[in-house]
Amino acid sequence: MIIIDKHTCTGCGTCVEVCPEDVYVLKDGNAFALYATECWVCGSCMFDCPVQAIEIDLEPPHAVRFIRKAG
């Protein structure tokens, strides 16, 4: 799942440049995940964003399930 913090995003276009799946475009001076469903969760945009405005998190079934305390 792609979460973009519009207030932090400066619209520099780094994510548009690096995304291997061509997910991003610029819209309203912000990063916009036009092809979000094609995201492969590689995390490149998250690593390279100079202001950490993008978060990529896992959703089911990819989210990791675990039991916190051994029973």
């Binding site: 590689c42 978060e55 675990f66 039991i67 916190r68 051994a70």
Partner: peptide, 24 residues
């Protein structure tokens, strides 16, 4: 490496403690 970077982010966000956690 690869998506383990995202996995790491995910695990940290969930506050995993490897000394206690069990993964089904």
């Amino acid at each position: 490496e690869g998506k383990t970077n995202v996995l790491k982010h995910h695990l940290i966000k969930q506050g995993v403690d490897f000394k206690e956690a069990r993964f089904p």
